[in-house]
Design a protein around this nucleic acid. Structure first.
Lengths: 220, 220
DNA sequence: CCCAGCGTCTTGACGTCGTCAAGATCGATC
DNA sequence: GATCGATCTTGACGACGTCAAGACGCTGGG
């Protein structure tokens, strides 16, 4: 389990560590995760390099192996951190209102904004080839984030006594937001090619959400 | 521009070529694309290797460079082939009916089924780090496929005199199907974890589509 | 007829990569 | 104050992407 708060703290002042005595780093795992995200955001997941990560953390090229086993282990840890951050952002999002529909909108905004605020993490979280998708900690982090969305959908359907299937509505919202994360740049490009200015993503999400909610309320 | 029909033909009987005289291959570009897709489907985009592709095509490790420049060039060509296949599948999908809503459903099914029938291509098509997204041929192939969806959405909105924005509805449908491609395996996993059998994706797409269309008809 | 030119493909080399084995360093514990 | 385990380093290996240089075989002009 990764501590989300410490994971995003500055490179100096490592928590629960001796701040580096020259030989022993003190908080190498977090430093490596930070460096890994940095490299991915600069070069993409395809340009990732364990040795470059080690270089940026100021350690030898084999140091990462002692904490993460191999490249897959480090990237899996980055993905786990991403899901933990998504979970935290989701919890914060539903705290802004008591109305399930408003919560759904905020959840969508939180999800899509993760694509920009945690771009490095997102490039890794849904890859099946470079991370270990069977990792128990990764799966539990992912399911926790999923649970937030599901519970909001369930409450909306219960509150309004709708006939829609909770799971399927959850999947619809999830898919739409997941697609939006990936397509937002292309959408902006197409909008400009069509002679209109790129849409404000948060507004787009609000309209998508109300549109889907309208459809859900209309279910047979 | 890649000829989609020849690109998927068998390894033997290369079209418009001398079938390999021992030294000169005859149809190396297509053979390399085929091998590339094969490698990606086996190992994922992260396990891709130019040398392995060359090995499978039976040529030296530098032969691909003469046709595609570098790794990015070959992968861009694979992505282009993917968009061309998507375009073809989209055209076929809208040919099954005259009703725009039915066409929209079929378009969604064609899109999502691409994720399994052309898994290797799909792993590359929306990556920004390992392909050249500025490539003119790639962009035109992508826009052609996009145009099919957009025209169906436009016809639906026109036919029913709806107030919804054509671009935004197109983006909604695209995002949802794009997310579904990526999340389908996870959705099946979650369904089974919830004690229900994995959903039939084609049915899910039909329900998602009618739900979204209901929302579109309800726009202010 | 043949030979010059040109696409096509190969050989060989370089630096970088991930990983493994072996050893060095340090703090905690007895 | 010696020992032990956790932590990190050094050095090596094969595989990778790319570059330079050269070999091959068709084609067309003398």
């Amino acid at each position: 389990m990764i501590d989300v708060t410490s994971a995003t703290s500055a490179a100096s002042d490592p928590p629960a560590a001796k701040a580096g005595d020259g030989y022993h780093h003190g908080d190498l795992p977090n430093a490596l995760r930070r460096a890994a995200v940095e490299v991915i955001e600069e070069r993409g997941a395809g340009g990732f390099s364990l040795r470059e990560v080690a270089r940026r953390a100021g350690v030898s090229h084999t140091a990462p192996a002692h904490h993460f086993g191999d490249m897959k282990g480090l990237l899996t840890s980055v993905a786990e951190e991403g899901f933990a951050a998504l979970h935290a952002a989701s919890e914060a999002a539903i705290g802004t209102s008591d109305d399930p529909v408003a919560q759904l909108t905020e959840l969508g905004r939180a999800y899509v904004s993760m694509g920009t605020t945690h771009r490095g993490h997102c490039e890794v979280m849904f890859r099946t080839d470079i991370i270990d998708t069977e990792d128990p900690e990764l799966m539990s982090c992912g399911l926790e984030a999923y649970g937030v969305l599901e519970s909001v959908v369930r409450r909306m359907i219960d509150d309004e006594h709708l006939s829609a299937d909770v799971d399927e509505v959850t999947w619809l919202c999830w898919s739409t937001m997941q697609g939006l994360v990936q397509l937002a740049p292309k959408i902006s490009m197409i909008a400009e090619a069509h002679g209109r200015e790129a849409p404000v993503i948060d507004d787009l999400i609000a309209r998508f959400t109300t549109l889907m909610v309208d459809g859900i309320r209309n279910a047979p």
